[in-house]
Design a protein around this nucleic acid. Structure first.
Lengths: 243, 243
DNA sequence: TACTGTATTTCGCTA
DNA sequence: TAGCGAAGTACAGTA
């Protein structure tokens, strides 16, 4: 059976389904009035309320309220789920090590528990990422500037990996930092850091830094200007239907 | 009724529940075999598979597979959900403007649809955030260094707001950047940016920069050292049970 | 495992 | 609304 649902179950019955579903790798949802305690990298406490709890076979657990894209509490994949009944409450505990983290959900009332058999072999294909912007530039380096020649991607430097490293028409080293969307000051700092690192590798060659992004904020433009860094406006995907 | 569930409903019946639930602000889950198309800031396509779709009354929608903490597709709060049946498929479309984004889920088979009435008035209380670290330092400035005196928090500079701005025993301006956990190179760059901005405000006063965090990576320590920036090891909450 | 950077980041706050 | 930075960020890639 692909889906098993218990409506307003006794805690004992809910416990049975949870244990069975955790055991054979099914996806589980539970809805009811609960409290949530978390302790790990930080610590949190959440008073009584109705929430949707999602337990995944990979060890992830999500506690969702009726608001927001983000779960109010969660545990990432790799945790171990356990269910129990104590003090008249149905409890779901999710634990992991490194870092040590525990999430505890205690239901005083459980409205519904469902276990789902999931068959999903499709992968997401996504366009418009920074990866697409990189490909676009490697395909057509002149988009950065006429005569630009890419030499390496993810080139290691003392300050970290540079998105695209190349040379300009005059043979000067060029550090290119890519961003898929409008950028703030941190991108300027990042580019500056790379340029300084590469500058130590190529003394007196006048290493240039170019930020490639759809746009920059005013403050970022000022920061780039101060540091003699350049900006090239470019989208991750061609806006026109051509090409 | 707090929870309404349809098991293996006809698309028409599922549609009825969805429209009703969208209309009166209920939380909805739908599970079945579906495809997902997204177009907006980026664009994506997801082939057929079994997924759990969560629609929230605030306009958020989440498409969850059986893996990962993150939804494979989603739409943030503020969207408008609409359900329909076309070409033998049950469709859920979630749209918003600024930015223009559309998410389309098309079910070829629907295993279960549930609408939940949610009553949740509790707020999360969380400890161990950067805010806690700031309070800790304002309570006990000597944790930064003996004689440190905080003057302002979130003090505006040309490079952005500084976490804690103060002065040292000798009256020199001090810029403090706080991080709740071990930090990488970007934090060093950020601090440097602030110090340079404040340095322009207080020429020849020898503005100091101090990074307060539990720890730093090796490369970050080197970057701090190169730029004459300092590091103070401190956790957002007192590790001991004392104090 | 630790480090580094991206993300359809989301989220909260402020000007 | 845009800008800015935090997050229990999660996640992927790499050493």
């Amino acid at each position: 059976m692909a889906v098993t649902t218990l409506h307003r179950p006794a805690h004992r019955d809910a416990l049975g389904l949870l244990e069975s579903a955790f055991g054979d790798g099914r996806l589980v949802t539970a809805f009811g009035r609960c409290t949530v305690e978390y302790d790990g990298r930080a610590a949190s406490s959440l008073g009584p309320g109705d929430r949707l709890v999602v337990c995944k076979p990979d060890g992830a657990i999500l506690v969702h309220t009726d608001e927001g894209r983000e779960p109010v509490n969660w545990q990432p994949p790799g945790c171990t789920h356990r269910a129990s009944v104590r003090d008249g409450r149905l409890r779901i505990r999710s634990e992991r090590t490194s870092p040590d983290e525990v999430l505890d959900v205690a239901f005083e009332r459980i409205e519904q528990v469902t276990a789902y058999e999931v068959d999903d072999r499709s992968d997401l294909t996504l366009t418009g990422s920074e990866e697409d912007l990189r490909r676009r530039i490697l395909d057509e380096p002149d988009l950065v500037e006429p005569g630009f020649e890419p030499i390496a991607t993810e080139r290691e430097t003392a300050a970290g990996p540079v998105d695209v490293f190349g040379s300009d028409e005059a043979g000067r080293p060029v550090v290119v930092e890519l961003k898929r969307r409008r950028v703030g000051p941190s991108a300027a700092s990042q580019l500056r850091r790379y340029v300084e690192a590469v500058d130590e590798e190529f003394p007196d060659e006048g290493v240039r830094g170019v930020l490639v992004a759809p746009s920059v904020t005013d403050r970022t433009a000022a920061l780039l200007d101060e540091r003699d860094l350049e900006f090239v406006a470019l989208e991750p995907v061609d806006g026109d239907g051509d090409s």
